[in-house]
Every structure is written in structure tokens, then in C-alpha cells.
Simulated assay, not measured.
Amino acid sequence: MGVLHALKLGLLLPSKRAVFQLNRVKTKDFLTYLVLLNVLISFPNGVRLISKSISSGEFGKESLLILFIYPSFIMLFGTIGIFLLASIGVLIRAVAKRKLVYQLLWKMTVYALTYPIMLYTLFDVLGITQWALNLVLLVLFLVIFLKMILIYPRIRKGMDG
């Protein structure tokens, strides 16, 4: 099961069945999936950095930066990005009056990013990097995320207050 199951769920979103199965993914598998998405998004640029460094003869000096610091920054900024996108989910949850906790919104954010990250990486490998493309990928994420949130039931009157 594991990470491949997590990937399958990410690819099946925003189907109702996949959304409800997200909460059943083990934390270990979820965190591995999160790391793999970060590796995927950083891979094309990482390869470019390594090849540029090798061709300039500076790889020995720059290897620490490229192999350790760059991936660390990708994980840090990826986590911050997920935090910000999950915060948007908190606003959507409040407006839509859905029964969701922040931890699940955070998890849903990661899985909703599956298609946008895969497409971003593909376009990056092909050398297609436009701000409008990034905007389209953000809209794709928001559509998937919104559909996922709206699957959850509304808060009934009198329950939380």
C-alpha cells in the first residue's frame, strides 16, 4: 500500500471516495509522499544546478550547497507554501461552513497539489516557465481543493456554539 496508495489517492481527487480515504493514510506514508512531491518539484532545477556546477568545474566547492542546502530550502519553502494554502482552506471551510479540522485541511492541501506539481515539473523540464502557467496551476489546485472541501458535510446549527 504505502506511498503508491497515497499517489493513487492524489490522482483520483477530487472523487468523494478518495477524499474520505485520505484520512486513513498512515502518517509515515503521508510524510514520505510530501517529501517525494518536494523532490519532484525541485528535480529539474536541481539537475540544472548540478550540470552547471560540473561544467564550470566548481562542483567540489558547490556540492554542499547543491546537495544539502538547496533541498533543505525546498522542503522549508514547500512546507510554508502548504501552510499558506491550507490557511486558504480554513477560510473556505468557514465560508462553506464545513466540518473540517486544520490537520485534515493540511493533508488535503498536499494531496490536492499532486496534479499541479506534476504539471509544473513537466513544464519545467520542457522549459516552459511562464507566470500565467503558474496562475493556471494555482487555479487548478483551488478547484480541486474547493471540490474536496465541499464533499464534507455542513456544520449543523446548534453543534458548535
Rank of each mutant, 00 (worst) to 15 (best):
N38H: 06
N38M: 06
V39C: 10
L40H: 04
L40P: 03
L40R: 03
L40E: 06
L40V: 12
I41E: 07
I41R: 08
I41D: 02
S42F: 02
S42D: 02
S42E: 05
S42V: 08
F43L: 15
P44W: 00
P44F: 01
N45R: 05
G46A: 09
G46T: 10
V47K: 03
R48W: 04
R48C: 01
L49V: 01
L49Y: 02
L49S: 07
I50M: 10
I50P: 00
I50Q: 02
I50Y: 08
S51L: 09
K52W: 07
K52C: 00
K52L: 13
S53R: 09
S53M: 09
I54C: 03
I54E: 03
I54Q: 02
I54L: 11
S55H: 08
S55P: 00
S56W: 03
G57E: 05
G57Y: 04
E58Q: 14
E58L: 14
E58C: 01
F59V: 08
F59I: 15
F59S: 05
G60R: 06
G60Q: 06
G60C: 05
K61C: 00
E62K: 14
S63E: 11
S63V: 11
S63W: 14
L64S: 12
L64N: 10
L64E: 12
L64Y: 11
L65P: 00
L65H: 01
L65A: 04
I66L: 10
I66G: 01
I66A: 03
L67A: 14
L67E: 10
L67H: 04
F68T: 11
F68N: 10
F68Y: 12
I69W: 11
I69N: 00
I69R: 07
I69K: 07
Y70T: 11
Y70R: 13
P71T: 13
P71K: 13
P71I: 15
P71G: 06
P71C: 08
S72Y: 13
F73E: 10
F73D: 05
F73T: 05
I74P: 00
I74T: 14
M75I: 15
M75T: 13
M75L: 15
M75W: 09
L76N: 02
L76I: 14
F77M: 07
F77H: 07
F77C: 03
G78W: 02
G78K: 04
T79N: 05
T79W: 12
I80K: 03
I80N: 05
I80H: 08
I82Y: 01
F83R: 06
F83H: 12
F83V: 12
F83I: 12
L84Q: 10
L84N: 09
